[in-house]
Nucleic acid binder design. Sequence first.
RNA 1: GGUGAGGUGGGUGAGUGGCUGAAACCACCAGUUUGCUAAACUGACGAACGGGAAACUGUUCCGGGGGUUCGAAUCCCCCCCUCACCGCCA
Length: 423
Amino acid sequence: MITLPRLRNNSEEVIARLAIRGLDASSMVNEVLTLDEKVRTLKTELEALKAESNANAASIGRLMKEGNVEEANKAKEASAQSKGIIKNLESELTTLESQLKEALVVLPNTPDFSVPTGKNSDDNKIEGVYGTMPEIPENSLPHWDLAKKYDLIDFDLGVKITGAGFPVYKGKGAIIQRALIQFFLNEAGKMGYTEIQPPLMVNSDSAFGTGQLPDKEGQMYYVGEDDLYLIPTAEVPVTNIFRGVLYKSDQFPIKYCGYTPCFRREAGSYGAHVRGLNRLHQFDKVEIVQLVHPDKSYETLTEMSEYVQSLLKKLGLHYRVLLLCGGDMGFTSAKTYDMEVWSPAQKMWLECSSVSNFETYQTHRLECRFKDENGKSQFPHSLNGSALALPRILASILETYQTPEGIVVPEVLRPYTGFDIIK
RNA sequence: GGUGAGGUGGGUGAGUGGCUGAAACCACCAGUUUGCUAAACUGACGAACGGGAAACUGUUCCGGGGGUUCGAAUCCCCCCCUCACCGCCA
């Protein structure tokens, strides 16, 4: 959530930044400011009344103690009168405050000024293309055919057991999944990330804290009986570790990583572009999360983006880095880099990581603060990134490393797989 | 699912209607002393929101919501959560 003091003091800047998303927020911002003004006026009025009534109640106590019952009873009558007025003002205030919150919560995060203006993915900026375009033979197969040929993934079986988008990994297919997870976790560990195994279901407070609610309600699987959501990413449970905590500035940076399955309803996506491993309802991902001092967050964003790229390099995959334009960024992000891996058989780029700086947007919702050097409490900045999402990486590996003899396992994975070729 | 106990400040924990935003202890912070460290002593020490140029000041908060009362951490009702034991169980 955007903080109120910021909206009061820098509303022009907030509007200018939101314009980067292609959003004209001026009327939304004005609504917030109008409501805020009303809330404050009413609050002042109400508090004065309450102060008076509190003082009165205290004096009744004194009079009773002194045995001055007559005076006390007079004061009681006066008190009873103001009670009704206070009650009315209070309910008015509650209404205004919830209106204010509703108006505030629908404002997305403000993009950093370095984010390109734009409406959709066409306006993203290509920051760089790395590795070499793999040359694969004419008769090369897309990953879903390779998965079938070598019996690595059974999509039909997943349909039988659960439904479309829930593949079954088998044999070496399962092992290479496990190898990737372990490789990613070990690499993150080397970089100082503490490994977390979080719950795979979260309550609505957590879903709100990271911004999945109310924005992406329909994208999460919901267990109504217990009022819990299946996590769409480890970001949700891991970032919620910070919820309601007051840190000290010398504790930063806090670095967590975690592997989890992720569950996404992906309502409304059908067709060829969701074929094979391209888009699933359940998939595996290793996530990295950091909580840092506000002065450091953009430095950290670069560091995290470079770390994610180092994984792609070690796997020997061809990839590119995009700086997302305002319109293509997530609701809660201030700046996002996407990494896309090349799928040589499909001849298309597949998003496999998204690294974002949320600035104070999440920490404000999470009520996560820290005491700065002057003892003032401030919101730290939170960041996260996929490092990495498995399915599209696997798709790219299968297609990139296919040979007439079989699929060659990238060298860095061999210690984890125990085999170097899939035949 | 059953029974019982309990949810108070960073932590432990006292507090059954006004003198309690809250004892005491611990931790943290500042200072004094000591050659350093440790120890001892002294002091400060919850948060959010509002008013004020500031000094300062007001309101709210003792799991959440509602009620009783002039006045609630304290009494009543509902809900949530935690713990223990039992039941079931990977």
